[in-house]
Each structure stands twice: as C-alpha cells, then as structure tokens.
C-alpha cells in the first residue's frame, strides 16, 4: 500500500509542474517514465484522476507512443538503431547478435534486469552507422565483434 501512496504523491508533483490541462498529458507521462523507468499502472490511474482524463484515454496515449513502456525496463536500455543508414550497414546483424548474447527477444528484459533490448527508429546519427545506444551512450560504427566486450563493461559498471 505504501508504494501506491508514494506513486500518487509523485504523480501529484509532476501534474502540478506541467499543469492539469489535457495537453500536458504526454509531458506528464514522460516525466513519470523518467522517474520510474516505465509507466506503473497506479501512476496511470492517478494521472487520469488528477488530470480528469478518462483512464481509457490515458491508456490510449501510453500505449500509442513508442517511448512509453508499461513494463519495467532493465538498468540499461539497449536501443538498436533501425534507421535506413544503419539498416544498409547491417544493423539487423547487430540486433541478432544482441538477442543471442543477451538471450532475450527484442522488447524483453534480461533476467538480471540489466538490459532491455529495443529497436529505435533512427537516432539521427546516420553518419556513424550502424549505431547502438546503450544507457544513453551512442556506440558508433559498431560491429558484432565488439558486442560481448561492450556488454561486459556495462555489467561491470553494475
């Protein structure tokens, strides 16, 4: 029960910052996701209540946009860029290698909660293709070969 009240308080704080106008809904959800790394259900319900937006509309927005996740994500978000430049430079091979090495499918989180693997639609770093962004850091000109070492380093950092 304690968790719910803190989530509610946090949502209140965020809603206050952006204002209760319906147009702030996306910004509010972005801040909640920043806070929790995903959108907890309690938070979505609280948003609906506090902003006076029907739950169905909150849920609609939360599931429509790519950046939102309704499931907890790992410590590091591994985003394989699937932009055109990265695709023609073989980014699909990087995705396959990451799937094998992390033993998860795209969209899943490793058992140790370290990594969540996702595909992203162009990071705008086309000059460095193919790129993978891990925990916000862009790894340029990545080859399959370097993946095990990079993952090891992140694991070491904990």
């Amino acid at each position: 029960m304690k968790k719910a009240t803190t989530i509610e308080a946090k949502v209140k704080e965020i809603v206050k910052k952006h204002g209760r106008d319906k147009s702030s809904l996306i910004a509010v959800l972005q801040d909640i996701q920043e806070e929790y790394n995903y959108l907890p259900k309690e938070a979505l319900l609280a948003v609906g209540e506090q902003m006076e937006v029907p739950s169905s509309r909150v849920y609609e927005v939360a599931t429509f946009y790519n950046t939102f996740s309704l499931n907890p994500r790992g410590r590091y978000l591994v985003e394989v860029c699937a932009g055109t430049a990265c695709h023609v430079q073989g980014s699909f091979n990087l995705m396959d290698r990451l799937k094998r090495d992390l033993e998860i499918e795209c969209g899943e989180t490793t058992k140790d909660n370290m990594f969540t693997l996702e595909e992203v639609r162009c990071l705008g770093c086309c000059s460095l293709a193919p790129v993978v962004r891990i925990g916000g850091n862009i790894h340029p000109y990545l080859t399959q070969d370097e993946i095990p070492r990079i993952l090891r380093n992140y694991r070491k950092q904990g």
């Binding site: 106008d21 509309r57 946009y65 950046t67």
Partner: peptide, 25 residues
C-alpha cells in the same frame, strides 16, 4: 517546447497537432 514520444506519424501535421493537444497522434 513539446517533446514527441516516438511516433513517425506525428510528422503529419494533423497528427502532430493531436499530439500537441495531448492525444494519440
């Protein structure tokens, strides 16, 4: 400033405006 939330379709003007209004794009 309004931050998008990851939807290619929001490059379309009416979808972008829906998104600015806080709705699905």
């Amino acid at each position: 400033i309004s931050k998008g939330a990851g939807a290619f379709v929001c490059g379309e003007s009416t979808a972008l405006m829906a998104s600015l209004e806080g709705k699905a794009g």
